[in-house]
Amino acid sequence: MKQAVKTAKRAKRRIGESRGGRPTKAEAQAIEDRILAVAADLFARDGYAATSMERVVSECGAGKDTIYRRYPSKRAIFGAVLERSRRRIMARLAELQVRQSSQNSLAQLKELTSLLLDINLDPELVAFKRTAASESLVAGGSQAEPEPDAIMSLLRTSVMKAQADRHVVSGDVNFLTDFLINSIIVGPTTLAMFGYKPLASPKERKLHFEKAWKLFLGGAAGRKD
């Protein structure tokens, strides 16, 4: 996060040195990146309530009109920060899929689940989730049907492939996917949401994952059927 803000500040200096008038496409993107990097740092560090549009304007150095043209409210800029985080997660998952092309379906499922554990324990993402939950921003009070979760769809597809290859039991793929998430990811993520720091080291995280994965495959009775 600190590196992202430093990069954004360097971009700011470069933009400030450019010619006047309408910014180029590259300059406009640099401005956008700077605004979201600063806003993400503020939301993650100080929370939603303590982060005002005025603070974003002050700390990123962009003009007030520049920011409000893009984001008319704090809710809008927070939504953009969450979308930025989601895109980064999807990019990591896409990179994983490329690397996994030669693996069997069970190995693919295992590596995907391990990566999702890492992603869900990322401090910035934990902070965003905590903020969204406490401020009730995710649903925004809307009664509309939620959009399909691309990450859950990816995990569900991976489970289905492992089922088709008979690496895991057949049956309700939704139930099995939910069970996988709850048995490996939800517990540590919930602790992190409450301010604890579970599985802080890579060694602790790997140990937890391997034990939970073994239990997922074999069940409490140690059977695979």
Results as ranks from 00 to 15, higher is better:
G187P: 01
G187K: 15
M193Q: 14
A192I: 00
Y68Q: 07
L112V: 12
I185H: 01
E135M: 07
V173L: 00
A139S: 12
V173K: 00
F194V: 02
V186K: 12
A164I: 07
S114C: 02
M152N: 11
R70W: 08
R69G: 01
V159Q: 06
L176I: 15
Q163R: 02
V159F: 03
L121Q: 02
Y68L: 07
Q143N: 06
V168G: 04
L106D: 07
A91G: 12
A139K: 15
E111I: 12
Q143L: 03
T131F: 00
R92W: 00
V98N: 03
N174T: 04
G79N: 07
M160N: 04
R87I: 02
D149W: 00
T177N: 13
L82S: 05
N120R: 12
M152E: 11
E135T: 04
V169A: 14
L115M: 14
G195W: 09
G187D: 10
N174E: 13
A127H: 06
M193V: 13
V159L: 02
T131R: 05
V168Q: 05
I77M: 15
L191M: 11
E83M: 01
Q108P: 00
L112G: 13
E145Q: 14
R69W: 03
E83W: 05
L115G: 08
R87D: 06
Q100L: 00
L155G: 04
R84E: 14
D122L: 04
Y68V: 00
L121C: 06
E135P: 02
S105N: 14
S73K: 13
L155T: 00
Q108F: 01
Y71K: 06
A132Q: 04
N174C: 00
D165F: 01
F128V: 09
S114L: 09
M160K: 12
A94K: 11
A107E: 10
D172W: 07
R166S: 10
A139E: 13
P123C: 02
R86V: 05
Q103Y: 05
T189F: 03
R70H: 12
D149E: 12
D118H: 09
L93Q: 03
L137C: 09
L93T: 07
G141T: 08
F175E: 15
R87H: 04
E111C: 01
V138N: 11
I184P: 06
